[in-house]
Simulated assay, not measured.
Amino acid sequence: MTTRQIGGLAATVEVGRVETLTPLMRRITVTGAGLRAFADVHLPGDAVKVALTAQGRSAELDPDDRSAPLHERLAAAGLVTRVYTLRDLAGDTAFLDVLLHAQGPGAAWGVLARPGDRVTIAGPAYGHAADPGAGEFVLIADHAALPALAETARALPAGATAHAYVALSGPGEAQKVVSPARVRAHWITPADPGSVEERTRALLEAVRAAPWRVPGTRVWAAGETGLVKALRRYIRRDLGVPREHARFSGYWTRGKDLDAADLAAVPEELRAAYEAFGYTDNHVIEDIEPSVDLV
């Protein structure tokens, strides 16, 4: 697989439609002429950084300001970023799918974003192109990486065969995976889907039980950092899949569990929104720079 790990574009876009795909997944449509430059260099699975306030509100910076690196300007403005896959990028429109699976600015944005909000994005990054000559693929993701898995599946070569394994954070969360390849999706919902440990265990068990055809199989895996490292050990070391045939990306890592004081400090508007969407994970997401080929 060919991978691009960094991009140098920035644009301010407008939130159009906000819709509920599943109980825990919001889809935020963004539009703007600046997206056309992203489309010109797009690779499947590309992601962008979204500028947010620490409370999860849309935030705007001048995308043409080159007076300082973006991360310095964000810090000076008291802003943070969260990373989301560009879905269905076409011209000046794209979708950003936001999973409401733990406390933090990203999930807050998923429930607080409103049409008309303006938000700055930067990227693209982390996209990749599947080997057009490969015939067998295995795609693995936790719920947070499902949008990236779906975009990856859309770009698989026609006639190829793929198995997709996805650990979900709750019931009713499966989505249709569209692809020119023949994809069989395996949706994994453990008895306690709100537990990161249970989701990790269930997904690893499913992957170990998969009908692997190692010679020539291409592997794509993304999700929580600890999960992806365990997958990498099994797939590279135990199965012997060569490095050039596998891609592993850590998307996020678990932070501290929330105590009563933490929960009481959550703004009422946000707490009500969390409860309405059936929050299951009582912990904070520690955002990380998505890492390709974790060691």
Rank of each mutant, 00 (worst) to 15 (best):
residue 1 M to F: 03
residue 4 R to M: 09
residue 6 I to W: 08
residue 10 A to C: 09
residue 10 A to K: 01
residue 11 A to S: 14
residue 12 T to I: 07
residue 13 V to N: 02
residue 15 V to T: 05
residue 15 V to E: 00
residue 19 E to S: 15
residue 24 L to G: 06
residue 24 L to K: 00
residue 27 R to G: 01
residue 30 V to Q: 02
residue 39 A to D: 14
residue 39 A to F: 12
residue 39 A to W: 13
residue 44 P to E: 11
residue 47 A to P: 02
residue 53 T to W: 13
residue 55 Q to T: 09
residue 61 L to C: 00
residue 62 D to I: 04
residue 63 P to S: 06
residue 65 D to L: 00
residue 66 R to D: 10
residue 66 R to Y: 02
residue 71 H to R: 09
residue 74 L to I: 08
residue 75 A to K: 13
residue 77 A to P: 06
residue 77 A to H: 08
residue 77 A to S: 13
residue 78 G to E: 03
residue 79 L to C: 02
residue 80 V to L: 09
residue 81 T to S: 07
residue 85 T to D: 00
residue 86 L to F: 00
residue 88 D to L: 05
residue 88 D to W: 11
residue 88 D to I: 01
residue 89 L to Y: 02
residue 89 L to N: 01
residue 91 G to T: 09
residue 96 L to Q: 05
residue 99 L to N: 08
residue 100 L to Y: 02
residue 102 A to H: 15
residue 104 G to N: 04
residue 106 G to R: 08
residue 107 A to W: 01
residue 108 A to L: 03
residue 109 W to I: 02
residue 110 G to R: 05
residue 111 V to E: 14
residue 115 P to V: 11
residue 116 G to T: 05
residue 117 D to W: 14
residue 118 R to V: 06
residue 120 T to L: 04
residue 123 G to R: 00
residue 125 A to N: 02
residue 125 A to V: 02
residue 127 G to R: 03
residue 128 H to D: 08
residue 131 D to I: 00
residue 133 G to S: 02
residue 137 F to T: 07
residue 138 V to Y: 08
residue 142 D to W: 04
residue 144 A to H: 06
residue 145 A to P: 03
residue 145 A to G: 11
residue 152 T to K: 05
residue 154 R to M: 13
residue 161 T to C: 09
residue 161 T to W: 04
residue 162 A to F: 09
residue 162 A to M: 11
residue 165 Y to C: 03
residue 170 G to Q: 00
residue 174 A to I: 09
residue 175 Q to L: 12
residue 183 V to M: 04
residue 184 R to Y: 05
residue 184 R to L: 15
residue 186 H to E: 15
residue 189 T to F: 06
residue 190 P to I: 12
residue 195 S to D: 08
residue 199 R to N: 15
residue 207 V to Y: 01
residue 208 R to K: 15
residue 208 R to A: 12
residue 210 A to H: 12
residue 211 P to G: 00
residue 214 V to F: 03
residue 214 V to W: 01
residue 216 G to N: 09
residue 218 R to N: 03
residue 220 W to F: 12
residue 222 A to T: 10
residue 223 G to M: 12
residue 223 G to I: 12
residue 224 E to A: 05
residue 227 L to F: 13
residue 227 L to A: 13
residue 228 V to A: 07
residue 229 K to Y: 10
residue 233 R to T: 14
residue 234 Y to V: 06
residue 235 I to V: 14
residue 237 R to A: 15
residue 239 L to A: 11
residue 244 E to F: 10
residue 245 H to Y: 05
residue 246 A to H: 03
residue 248 F to K: 01
residue 249 S to D: 07
residue 249 S to T: 13
residue 256 K to S: 14
residue 256 K to G: 07
residue 257 D to Y: 04
residue 257 D to W: 10
residue 260 A to I: 02
residue 260 A to Y: 03
residue 262 D to T: 00
residue 262 D to Y: 01
residue 262 D to S: 02
residue 263 L to C: 05
residue 264 A to E: 08
residue 270 L to R: 08
residue 272 A to E: 15
residue 274 Y to R: 14
residue 275 E to C: 00
residue 275 E to S: 11
residue 277 F to N: 14
residue 278 G to M: 05
residue 278 G to T: 07
residue 280 T to G: 14
residue 282 N to I: 07
residue 283 H to Q: 14
residue 288 I to V: 14
residue 290 P to K: 05
